[in-house]
C-alpha cells in the first residue's frame, strides 16, 4: 500500500479490511467529512480504551494504602515495669512501650518502640497511664516538675492530664493498663489528633 490516497479515498488494503458498507470504504468526496468524523471517534475510542486499560489498574495499585494498616503491632498490653517502681505521690515516670513485633510494610521488626507513656500513682494509690502524644498535633509531651508541657505549641496539662493552657482541645489521652504478677502492662493506643473528642485513630 502506497498510502498516497487523497483524503476521502481509502487505500485498497483498508477497503478489503472493513468492507464496502463501512464509512472507511466510502470514497465519495461528499462523505469525506463523515469518514473523517468516524476516524476521529474510532481513534479517540481506541485511545480511551488503551488509556483505561492502563490507568484503572494503575489507580487501583496507587490507592492501595488507603484504609490499610501498613504499620501495625498487636494491641495487647505491653510489659512496662514492676508496679513497685511507681511510688505513690512521686513525680510521673516516662516509660517507652516496646512492641515485641511490629509489621512495617514488608518487614517484621522485633522490639520496636511504639511510643511513650507517663505513669503516675497519686497519694491515694490510684494509677494513671497517659499517652505522651500531645492530643493537639502529636508532639511528644514532657514534664517540667509540676505539669506536662508540650514543646511545640505550649499546651500544658495537669498531673491528671487535664488541659490547663494552650491550644489543645482535650486533656492527655489515658492508656488502658493492667497489673499482672506485680508488673504494669500498658496497651499502646493512638488517638485522633486535634479534636475535643477522644477517638481511636
Amino acid at each position: 500500500m502506497g498510502g498516497a490516497a487523497p483524503r476521502g479515498e481509502a487505500p485498497r488494503f483498508q477497503r478489503s479490511l472493513v468492507g464496502k458498507e463501512s464509512p472507511l470504504a466510502d470514497d465519495s468526496a461528499s462523505n469525506g467529512a463523515s469518514r473523517r468524523r468516524f476516524l476521529k471517534l474510532a481513534t479517540c475510542a481506541l485511545g480511551g480504551g488503551v488509556g483505561a486499560a492502563v490507568a484503572i489498574p494503575a489507580i487501583r495499585y496507587a490507592i492501595t494504602p488507603i484504609g490499610e494498616k501498613t504499620v501495625s503491632a498487636a494491641d495487647d498490653p505491653i510489659d512496662a515495669l514492676p508496679l513497685e517502681q511507681v511510688k505513690p505521690g512521686a513525680p510521673p515516670l516516662q516509660v517507652t512501650l516496646v512492641a515485641p513485633v511490629q509489621r512495617d510494610g514488608w518487614a517484621a521488626v522485633k522490639n520496636v518502640p511504639l511510643g511513650a507513656a507517663w505513669i503516675r500513682r497519686d497519694t491515694g494509690g490510684t494509677l494513671t497511664a497517659l499517652s505522651a502524644v500531645c492530643p493537639h498535633l502529636g508532639c511528644a509531651v514532657g514534664f517540667d516538675g509540676k505539669q506536662y508541657v508540650c514543646p511545640c505549641h505550649d499546651s500544658t496539662f495537669a498531673l491528671d492530664g487535664a488541659v490547663q493552657a494552650g491550644p489543645s482541645k482535650r486533656g492527655l489521652d489515658p492508656l488502658p493498663f493492667e497489673v499482672v504478677e506485680g508488673r504494669l502492662r500498658i496497651a499502646w493506643v493512638r488517638y485522633r489528633l486535634g479534636g475535643p473528642d477522644r477517638e481511636k485513630a
Binding site: A4, A5, R7, A42, T43
Partner: peptide, 15 residues
C-alpha cells in the same frame, strides 16, 4: 498526507 486522522487511526489500532 496530514497525520490526523488517517495515520492517527492506524497508530491507535496498532497501539
Amino acid at each position: 498526507v496530514g497525520y490526523f486522522p488517517d495515520q492517527a487511526f492506524r497508530d491507535a489500532i496498532a497501539i
